[in-house]
Design a binder for these strands. Structure first.
Lengths: 140, 140
DNA sequence: ATACTTGCAAAACATTTGCAGTGAG
DNA sequence: CTCACTGCAAATGTTTTGCAAGTAT
């Protein structure tokens, strides 16, 4: 059975407090304010457990490692900053994507990621250097 | 300037011949029929170059490493069948996604993946079991 | 007590980089 | 002749695993 440990709560809390998908390392940093001695391996182990339990869900972005966020949120999408690489939640949706699918195909769900510059990065550094986002199109 | 080397042609040829997205390792295997002494580092270096040149593009599927395929000449998205896992190209686009971004954010590009059932699977198979697709919402 | 958990370190992978030698232009 | 390119090995970076000690139940 799954126990209630300090580290597990800290990890859960860190993800809940973030409000955006966190990488395992970010989870570690966040959770260490509660449990300073927390180990990275423990973070990975717990992320796996929480994933299997459906408490959190993975967010997979091209050119970046998997991030995690609480499951059960409203349906939403993500915006990744090409400069600082941070990922933000977008609580909006293009809607009606069934029309994009070929005839005979049934759309059950979708995944949308926007790329660009967040308010912070757009304000300061203007150039998007060293960016290597995969699969970023240009018809937006 | 970019030179024309045997290994680069072999890599290009391997990707072109596959007809499906290949992982770096698969590219290596395929290209070694032309250049047996080909090294993995060279594959990675060339994938990066070809990516930057827009000759190929990365395909990022949840739970799998990045794969590469020849770049189509047009912007497109992907449809992954929840039953057979195959990935299809979708030559359509929702358009105008800037409106979805928070104020102050600039959208430079986007990535869209639809999940559902392809014409084949919709006809035959029943349920999509054992599917662990990340970030699949339900507002479509 | 029992056995699930943890921290640390080492292992297993994936990808990148340093370097001297090679070859395209 | 030059300098981009290559192969190899070593370096990075990420995620997993082995194991003895710790701890919730």
């Amino acid at each position: 059975m799954k126990r209630a440990t300090r580290q597990r709560s800290a990890i859960r809390a860190a993800i809940a407090a973030a409000g955006r998908p966190l990488s395992p390392l970010e989870v570690l940093e966040g959770a260490r304010s509660d449990v300073p001695a927390l180990g990275l391996a423990t973070v990975y182990r717990n992320l796996r457990l929480l994933l299997d339990d459906g408490e959190i869900q993975g967010v997979n972005l091209p050119g970046d490692n998997v991030r995690y966020e609480l499951a059960g949120h409203d349906h939403h999408h993500h915006f990744q900053c090409l400069a600082c690489q941070r990922v933000f939640d977008i609580h909006a949706c293009p809607g009606d994507l069934q029309r994009l699918a070929p005839p005979g195909f049934v759309v059950e769900g979708h995944d949308l990621t926007l790329y660009g510059y967040c308010a912070d990065c757009r304000a300061s550094a203007v150039g998007g250097q060293g960016v290597r986002a995969v699969g970023v199109g240009a018809c937006s």
